[in-house]
Amino acid sequence: MALPKRIIKETERLMAEPVKGISAVPHEDNLRYFDVTIEGPEQSPYEGGVFKLELFLPDDYPMTPPKIRFLTKIYHPNIDRLGRICLDVLKGNWSPALQIRTILLSIQALLGAPNPDDPLANDVAQKWKEDQNAAIETARQWTREHAKP
């Protein structure tokens, strides 16, 4: 099936005007599949880390949200150990007016503002609630170990 014009336009724009700290490169053999890297936001436990993600645009994109998953191990209450992300705009709050770049920015913001009240990784959320400083230190350590640039 031919690639919709919107996907082509979005890809071109991502290449022409990249967002700072975010890159998304489509696979040559499948233009719906993107390799994404997101830099950890400043003044967060993930600062200095570079996180790899995979992004896939389903056939009925943009009517359905893109499928995104962390490939790099990350200690975050809203990201489980399989890398799945708990983010409202990736589920029920998706709107076809959103784009790849806005979604990636939302994920970057999620790294800077973890939300343990709506957890996906329950054990992480639990620790985050009990001892936030220890959890943040663990997150730093994981970032140093797994998210090397």
Partner: peptide, 12 residues
Amino acid sequence: PAPQLICGICQS
């Protein structure tokens, strides 16, 4: 085209 004429869904 001017961005005001672009549909938010199809980006055209």
